[in-house]
């Protein structure tokens, strides 16, 4: 049976991240969640698996903190989840993450499609899908806003700056989807209950046989303050104020 893979990441909920007065980041109160865009990737995988008559399988690379993600991912309709549990995930960059995911995917049979989100909601590096494609030597289609499967062919619409590009690839392939690909539904009661009974395959870093050290390391994370011009247009009457505002916006290249 063919398998459609959804890669997802467990991230800190940005709503709970606090930036201290000295611009240092406080993650101590942040709860975890599945990266928002990955929820669309999961739904896309479920829909694709239904068309292909296969299974939808989630793959995640995370520390032990990512355990709560399994039930959530499965309640969204995945048939099973493969959980690469490794402390290395806390320091991973796009390269290490893609290497881990690709190694786990390689162990699965009949993989016809690998779906990632365009980027994660925390780092948004946009590296995972292209790098997995490179590791597995598969075609990669990014920025996908719409996709359709006919037989062994995937037709994807890529959303570019100001135009849409339609691409056809033969499966197997890797796609990176945009959130607008589907409205990821909120799981219902039975789906949540069923999630507890679905299989989870746990892999350790050693099982993968690949080096999970990052190629780039994070030296600092800090908040920033947006510099604002703080110009107030209050000279003259309303017409003059509007004129001044428009002139200033032109000057900034906004208009």
């Amino acid at each position: 049976m063919s398998q459609v893979i959804a890669c997802y990441k467990w991230v800190a909920d940005e709503a709970d991240i606090r930036i201290n007065a000295d611009l240092s980041i406080d993650l101590s109160k942040a709860k975890g969640k599945i990266s928002d865009y990955d929820k669309n990737a999961i739904e896309a995988a479920i829909q694709a698996a239904a068309v292909l008559g296969g299974k939808a399988v989630g793959v995640t690379f995370g520390t032990s903190d990512a355990k709560p993600s399994l039930k959530d991912a499965l309640s969204r309709g995945l048939d099973e989840v493969c959980y690469i549990k490794a402390q290395e995930a806390s320091q991973a960059d796009g390269a290490a993450t893609a290497r881990a995911l690709a190694a786990a995917i390689k162990k699965l049979e009949n993989v016809s499609l690998i779906i990632c989100a365009e980027g994660a909601s925390d780092t948004y590096s946009r590296q995972t899908a292209p790098r997995i494609g490179a590791f597995l030597d598969l075609p990669v289609v990014t920025s996908v806003s719409k996709m359709e499967l006919t037989g062994n062919t995937l037709t994807a619409v890529r959303k570019l700056d100001d135009c849409l590009q339609t691409v056809k690839v033969d499966l197997p392939a890797v796609v990176a989807v945009l959130p607008e690909i589907n409205p990821a539904p909120i799981p219902g009661l039975k789906a949540v209950l069923a999630a507890g009974k679905k299989p989870v395959h746990e892999l350790k870093a050693a099982d993968l046989g690949v080096d999970l050290s990052p190629l780039s390391t994070i030296s600092e994370i800090k908040g920033y303050i947006m510099d604002r011009k703080n110009i107030i247009f209050n000279e003259g009457d309303l017409a003059e104020q509007v004129k001044a505002l428009v002139a200033a916006l032109r000057k900034e290249g906004v208009l």
Binding site: I186, P187, G188, L189, V192, L193, G196
Partner: peptide
């Protein structure tokens, strides 16, 4: 203890 807790529902 074995209870099932389903959140968000």
């Amino acid at each position: 203890m074995g209870a099932i807790v389903a959140c968000g529902i």
